[in-house]
Amino acid sequence: MSALIELSGVRKTYRSGTVEFEALRGVDTVIAEGEYAAVIGPSGSGKSTLMNILGCLDVPTEGRYVLAGEDTSSLDEAALAAIRNRRIGFVFQQFHLLASMPAWRNVELPLVYAGVSRAERRERAVEALTRVGLADRVDNRPGQLSGGQQQRVAVARALVTEPDLLLADEPTGNLDSGSTRDVLALFDELHDAGRTIVLITHEPDVAARAGRNLVIDDGLITTDRVRAGAR
């Protein structure tokens, strides 16, 4: 399978005043299309920085990040926004749904920025919500949904543009165990359907669902383990 993500020599240095802090100190890795990878590490290990760079929310200070054959290192903010819109679907720990809008309006949001027509947006949003099992909650506002349902709305929003990469940052961090099972099962399904998923977590049980575990510590990938039998 061809590579979706190629990181080579990625460094990220944060500067506050005269103090420099190196969050990533040379990360090299390749994630293939269709892979389900979990990035694990304690807080402060650099996994959030890695997630930001993978999500094109931030650019590396040094090194190259090639996503689907496109080198993102030299792109400006507008071009990065377009890549996020087209290629990446985000799932956040805090869901980040807009409280004033019903579920389907939250889901269609990425399509608004992609310039999709109104009628098609609604259709695709409902379709995505159906795929995550919320066909009957299309018009509910986030406040009327449980945490697990809210996260499923967020997953629907991440999927609605048919992105190359589903990037989930601690997706179960705010969920009870029942909802956690639901959401992880949904990820399994999406993986089975061929979707590339990168999941950032500090919970070993969550990481265990992924076919591949990348352990990051002190700004470096220390372990790269592929689970037996994983694709």
Binding site: G55, A81, P110
Partner: peptide, 10 residues
């Protein structure tokens, strides 16, 4: 922030 993550340009 969310809108930007979802692809809104500045």
């Amino acid at each position: 922030g969310l809108r930007k993550a979802l692809g809104a340009t500045p």
